[in-house]
Amino acid sequence: MNFTKTSHKFGQWADSRANTVYGLGFPSEAHLSKFAEKFSEFKEAARLAKEKSQEKMELTSSPSQESATDLQSPVTPESINGTDERVTPDAAFNAESRAEPNAVPFPHSSTSITKHWEAELATLKGNNAKLTATLLESTANVKQWKQQLAAYQEEAERLHKRVTELECISGQTTGIKTQKTELNQTIEELEAELKAKEEELEKLKEEVENADQLQTQKDSLTQKLQETELRNAELESQLLDLEQRLENSQSEDGAFRKSLRSLLELLDGKIFELTELRDSLAKLLESGCS
């Protein structure tokens, strides 16, 4: 039997003669490595014990003497029997240390040997089926535990953020108290100014009530103000119109300048062509005279 690490925290070994697979889970990778080392030690010890028992059988002269073979009992978690209890690696090591070799007498007849091994094979097949079901259940539990762990991690991150926010808020409490004190002083000053303004306003109301002339002047000023506002609105509309016209004239001026440049470029081209034509005619005239 060879122990194989199938993951960081789970390992299994198979008994090919019994057609059975055993598995065991661990809380950490260190426990898994320790169990693997102990497994190899006990495996080697079982092999040596088996060799010694074979030597004793060869030295025995009586053919009817029953021989015993030292067998290492596999350590399996109690969850294989259908319970939810977990077996720690230390408990498994203690169980292996306490395990003593069992003497298995070999029956004399071939029929009894066959029946014996058939019963053993049926038992091992049943244990294998139980172990397979347990492994499937463990796989499902692992998936569920991973989902729960992810949810717990998200909740922990959210709580951590909340704690950070609360710490920031508690750190700002002193500043808020200082600002509150300053605001209270400002409010008191504003209330005092408001009272003074109210008293002044009361005096002004008394003066307005006692002076009809001030009321007439107020109406006149109000009318003038309205007229001024209307005139201001007209002037603003005229100003906007003038600005629009200015923009249009500027755009027209730009377009005119652009067209003038294109005309100048065209005129330059024509002048260049006429110059070439004149030179060609002059050359033709000179060649004709000669």
Results as ranks from 00 to 15, higher is better:
Leu239Phe: 14
Thr216Gln: 07
Lys130Arg: 14
Leu285Gly: 13
Gln223Pro: 00
Phe106Asp: 10
Phe10Leu: 13
Thr228Asp: 10
Cys289His: 13
Ser280Trp: 08
Gln144Tyr: 05
Glu193Gly: 03
Glu191Lys: 05
Asn19Asp: 07
Glu198Pro: 01
Leu194Val: 01
Phe35Thr: 03
Leu267Tyr: 13
Lys50Cys: 10
Lys283Met: 07
Ser138Arg: 02
Ser16Val: 15
Gln65Ala: 05
Asn141Glu: 15
Ala150Gln: 13
Pro105Thr: 00
Arg278Leu: 12
Leu239Cys: 01
Lys161Met: 07
Glu78Leu: 15
Trp145Cys: 09
Lys43Tyr: 07
Ser237Cys: 03
Glu100Leu: 08
Thr216Arg: 03
His31Gly: 09
Thr275Asn: 11
Asn232Cys: 14
Lys43Val: 02
Ser97His: 06
Ala282Leu: 05
Asn128Gln: 11
Thr132Lys: 13
Thr139Ile: 08
Glu265Val: 03
Val87Ser: 15
Glu247Leu: 11
Pro77Gln: 04
Gln172Tyr: 05
Pro77Phe: 00
Leu281Trp: 08
Asp219Ile: 04
Asp212Arg: 01
Ser40Ile: 11
Pro74Asn: 01
Lys38Gly: 01
Glu276Arg: 10
Phe26Trp: 04
Ser287Gly: 09
Val208Glu: 04
Leu264Val: 06
Ser40Gly: 04
Gln153Lys: 06
Ser53His: 02
Glu96Arg: 14
Glu41Ser: 10
Phe10Trp: 12
Leu214Ser: 06
Thr181Val: 07
Phe26Lys: 00
Asn94Lys: 13
